[in-house]
Design a binder for these strands. Structure first.
Lengths: 142, 142
DNA sequence: TAGCAATGTACCAACCGTGGTTACAACAAG
DNA sequence: CTTGTTGTAACCACGGTTGGTACATTGCTA
């Protein structure tokens, strides 16, 4: 399984906002044309980022802006906002192993620790990259 | 998105094999009753592990065994065998960003490096745990 | 060589998340 | 009140996962 493209689209959207917010009103239509997806997909995404306190969306008048300094927004923040990770985490455990079997009875206790460490390693790396970082890279190339 | 339960089931199956192979013939039916899923699910899984050179499956006579020492089988090996990761990796990138936009034109180049580092961090952690490790933990509890 | 136990695989069905699309109400500002 | 935009509901299509039945194939053994 792959992490959904919502994640990369969200990063793309945030870079767009920061790149263009001084020159124009950054609407869902504008972001959608840069990402090349349907505007509704962007609006749904912005709602998730809004709930996570990452962006502000101006209803009526239109437009979007970041809700806090972009060097305080990490890829992990976006991942948590966009990927529905609540409960369960990265790995999907099989339910109902046979409790009568010594393996089935303990598999959960044994694996949980290990899987948690793997997930933590990933999250640590994600938390070390900010939108500011990727924005800088983008400006360097543009 | 979550990593499919095939992964944890595969680890469960390998522990079963090592735990019981001296006492009995470890068949797909036996593993299935410990994991508590349909035997066919196990057989399909064993085929993937076999292709990756992790297990041997005895056709006709029946039974399964590991194909190499279990302190040389890491969680990463199993992940690669079972999760269809070929091409694309952990992250699903949105295709066709707008090449006329300076953000759309460079998003791929900018993000690829970062995402690769995140994936590598996860893989490094996965590669550091062997089946021998989790087997030891299981025996300690059983 | 017939029978048995097990694997290998084809096919089916149900479910869920994703992503695409249309439509429309709610809203702010000129 | 008109215009541009957001917020959201209601669909649909697609693909991956998971669970299941059925059966041909295989190797061993009596």
């Amino acid at each position: 399984m792959q992490i959904s493209s919502r994640f990369t689209i969200a990063v793309h959207a945030l870079i767009c906002i920061e790149m263009f917010k001084n020159d124009r009103k950054v609407t869902s239509d504008f972001i959608a044309s840069s990402v090349n997806v349907n505007p509704v997909v962007i609006r749904r995404l912005l709602q998730q980022l809004k709930k996570a306190g990452i962006v502000q969306v101006m209803r009526g008048s239109g437009g979007t802006d970041t809700a806090r300094p972009i060097d305080e927004i990490t890829l992990l923040d976006i991942y948590n906002a966009v990927e529905c990770v609540d409960e369960g985490g990265l790995f999907h455990f099989h339910e109902n192993p046979n409790q009568l079997c010594p393996v089935g009875r303990n598999i959960h206790a044994v694996l949980d620790v290990r899987l948690d460490e793997i997930q933590k390693a990933m999250e640590k790396e994600m938390g070390s990259v900010t939108i500011q970082d990727v924005l800088n890279d983008t400006k360097r190339l543009a």
